[in-house]
Design a protein around this nucleic acid. Structure first.
Lengths: 302, 302
DNA sequence: GGGCATTAAGACGAAATCGGTATCAATGAT
DNA sequence: ATCATTGATACCGATTTCGTCTTAATGCCC
């Protein structure tokens, strides 16, 4: 598969830059015949003449000129990759792969990442949207480092901490009669056509809401489903029905949708936990957890 | 300098993708202990642990995960570079490095390249602006393949063909009294303040113009100099003076500047030649020369 | 809980590779 | 015409590389 290696490329670059085998050999700390052989070997393996050489002069061919530039960049890139790898190992830089859900994604996670980036510019955050059950899998399989999940995560390998909780909120069209009330009850909502997120995308929230209706001895009427928050808000704005969510999504604006808290007894809380593998904890992760708890505290209404 | 080579990277990628030393060995057509050794060597030379391995399980470290992605891309890039190098050598693809001057750059070269690209999509053109004398050097030193130069180029190693010629043109502000005449003479211009390109940027054109004045027994009065065509046109538009150029630059628009032919006896022609090294001629170059002569013909007023 | 299968790593010897010295052939400068 | 300098070749010793055999560790299954 690999017919030549980095020494071939580096030696070729040296010769192509110097246009002189002796000086190139010197630069590479080799004897001149070795350089000759390496370059000949490279040409042979590529099946391409890279240098036109008389005994007095060396010139690049068109292919050689192209390969010179490529090889320079490739070698440079290898150098950078090597350096970055070392920085990552030393903890100077870090990459955190983080999962988030729709509920955490619209305000909690943005707040946390903004705060975290301020004090940790050398940590790259790779944020990926996925549902809570998927996150649990990915954490176990070590495909993400941290997960913002709905509900806790009990496992010998996993640790999780509550970072925020939300109360249920009804989001309704501005012209809906129920906007007259300051807060709503399950009984209020049971009489309405609801717009709901699909079970696939909001497995945890769906379950919590269903339970809340059950506790109140009611059944919810789902008129329409959507699989994204944008879709849900669109349907509500269009007056198709009321949806039930956590808090007020920041970006939807209060000019189209009204939010009303849903009051229940006992109160229903959607708990967001931050979860990670107990092993392979490092400084960056530790600091991220710290910031998450600090920022999350403001979401912890008593 | 180079502490490891492509086999290290490729083997590491195989192990990191398979997360299994045996399967990786199989994929690389090696024995398993060899794979172990290669990876250990890579880790040793980097000074970084890339894989966490028990006797039952292999997992990437953070550094390893990063290096995996980098190494995949680097190997891919090497693959592409190798392929392209071969295509260049076979003549399937080509790169032509071409020099052009201000005079040729505003209409002739754009016309030629547009035409050439239509029939030769696999040839990349690298166009670089430089004066005619610089182009002569660069052609000799094999730093460009083809040069559009003012005047011819006589040399045993170099071949050149005329592709176009221009007559001298005066460019004057629209409100200038001389715009009343259909054509101008050197005597007309000798009475005016001229705006001229610098000797550094237009060595050939400057020389031709000076000679024309000399033949008419006149001396030109240079009021202001500029080192770019844009600068010259700006000065003319501002009414600072008249400039002498070849033809009418397309992009300057006729709403601000008037062009008048300069009549002399015998007529003064600025000849543009296309020049190249006699050796190292190839198909792409041959086709480019062909197209240049075809397109240039329309610039060859008798 | 013990045996078994499977994992990665170590030891060692054969083989190939690599690199340096000495040398050659070609060519441009003097 | 001569000489210095260029890149290529021959050969040999040192090193590296790789495969086979083997070991140590660990999860799995009964």
């Amino acid at each position: 598969m690999i017919r030549y290696d980095l020494k071939h490329l580096a030696t070729f670059v040296a010769v192509a830059e110097e246009l002189n085998f002796h000086r190139a050999a010197e630069r590479q700390n080799m004897a001149q015949p070795a350089v000759s052989r390496i370059v000949l070997e490279l040409e042979d393996r590529l099946g391409v003449k890279l240098l036109e050489r008389t005994t007095r002069k060396v010139r690049l061919t068109e292919s050689g000129r192209y390969l010179l530039v490529e090889a320079q960049e490739i070698l440079g890139r290898i150098h950078v990759a090597e350096h970055t790898t070392r920085l990552l190992a030393s903890g100077t830089k870090a990459i955190l792969r983080i999962g988030y859900t729709t509920i955490t994604g619209h305000s909690l996670v943005p707040d946390i990442t903004r705060e975290f980036r301020l004090s940790n510019p050398d940590v790259r955050l790779e944020l990926t949207y996925m549902t809570s059950p998927v996150q649990r899998d990915k954490i176990l399989q070590d495909e993400i480092d941290l997960g913002f999940i709905e509900g806790s995560f009990q496992n010998s390998e996993i640790e999780s901490r509550p970072v925020a909780h939300h109360r249920l909120t009804a989001l309704l069209p501005l012209d809906h009669p129920l906007t007259a009330k300051k807060s709503l009850t399950i009984d209020d909502l049971a009489r309405e056509q609801l717009v709901m997120g699909t079970r696939v995308e909001w497995p945890t929230l769906r379950r919590i809401i269903v339970d809340a209706f059950q506790s109140a001895g009611q059944v919810m009427k789902v008129g329409q489903e959507a699989s994204s928050l944008t879709g849900l808000l669109g349907l509500v704005t269009a007056g198709v029905g009321i949806t039930i969510f956590c808090g007020m999504p920041r970006f939807c604006g209060e000019n189209a949708i009204a939010a009303r808290p849903i009051v229940t007894n006992p109160p229903v809380l959607v708990e967001t936990h931050l979860a990670w593998r107990r092993t392979s904890i490092n400084m960056a992760k530790r600091r991220f957890i710290e910031v998450s708890q600090k920022v999350g505290a403001s979401y912890m209404t008593p």
